[in-house]
């Protein structure tokens, strides 16, 4: 039965690691803006190529 102490110790450490991760996320401001990160991935990041045809003609 003593193995359960080991398991509890291990699980508690894991839990504390997650708590630390959460703390970091809050401190780095990730909870303050819940809109722009979601939008950021929508636009593609192709390089700035002018699509204006007049620029491409010789």
């Amino acid at each position: 039965m003593s193995v359960i102490f080991l398991l509890i110790a291990a699980s508690t450490i894991v839990a504390v690691v997650f708590l630390a991760a959460f703390t970091w996320a809050v401190r780095s401001g990730q909870y303050e803006d819940d809109r722009s990160p979601a939008v950021r991935m929508l636009g593609d990041d192709r390089p700035a190529v002018p699509t204006n045809p007049s620029n491409n003609t010789k």
């Binding site: 839990a15 997650f18 708590l19 703390t23 809050v26 401001g29 909870y31 303050e32």
Partner: peptide, 16 residues
């Protein structure tokens, strides 16, 4: 405006 950071921490600790 908005939710202060400390409140998230307090809530997170309580949930944990």
């Amino acid at each position: 405006p908005g939710v202060p950071r400390i409140l998230y921490l307090r809530l997170g600790i309580a949930a944990f």
